[in-house]
């Protein structure tokens, strides 16, 4: 009975490590069934696994994934920097105004203090 449920069940988890083990041929029977079940129910996973099986060396796919993730982080970092620069550029007058107000306030405060404490 419980095995029949597998036919109707859907799993949307993408477990890279499990895929790697499957591709390397080191997955246990249970893990292999999990991956092949995903392949049976999801054409995208099926295509991906078929594509990955075309790699002459499964280790190379892993190396590429690490490189791509590192490049992705760099891209994201650049984008964040650009967003920050854009924000600074857009808000430059606001920032200048705040600095000017703060400077005037500080000068006024110290002038008052100076006048207050100076001998008459």
């Amino acid at each position: 009975m419980s095995d029949l449920k597998n036919i109707l069940s859907n799993s949307n988890i993408i477990d890279e490590q499990l895929f790697q083990k499957y591709l390397a041929g080191t997955a246990s029977a249970e893990e292999r069934f999990f991956v092949e079940n995903q392949m049976a129910e999801d054409d995208i996973v099926n295509e991906a696994i078929e594509g990955l099986q075309n790699f002459k060396d499964p280790q190379l796919a892993q190396t590429y994934v690490a490189q791509l993730n590192s490049q992705l982080q760099k891209q994201i970092g650049k984008r964040k920097k650009r967003q920050f620069n854009k924000l600074i550029k857009e808000q430059s007058w606001t920032i200048i105004a705040i600095i000017v107000v703060l400077t005037i306030s500080a000068i006024a405060y110290f002038t008052i203090q100076l006048l207050h404490h100076s001998p008459r």
Binding site: E16, A48, G51, L52, N54
Partner: peptide
């Protein structure tokens, strides 16, 4: 940063699809 974390989950899958 969230987009980066999200996309990384699909790197292997996309590599496989492109290779296919």
């Amino acid at each position: 940063q969230w987009i980066g974390i999200l996309l990384q989950r699909y790197t292997l899958l996309l590599l496989g699809v492109c290779m296919k």
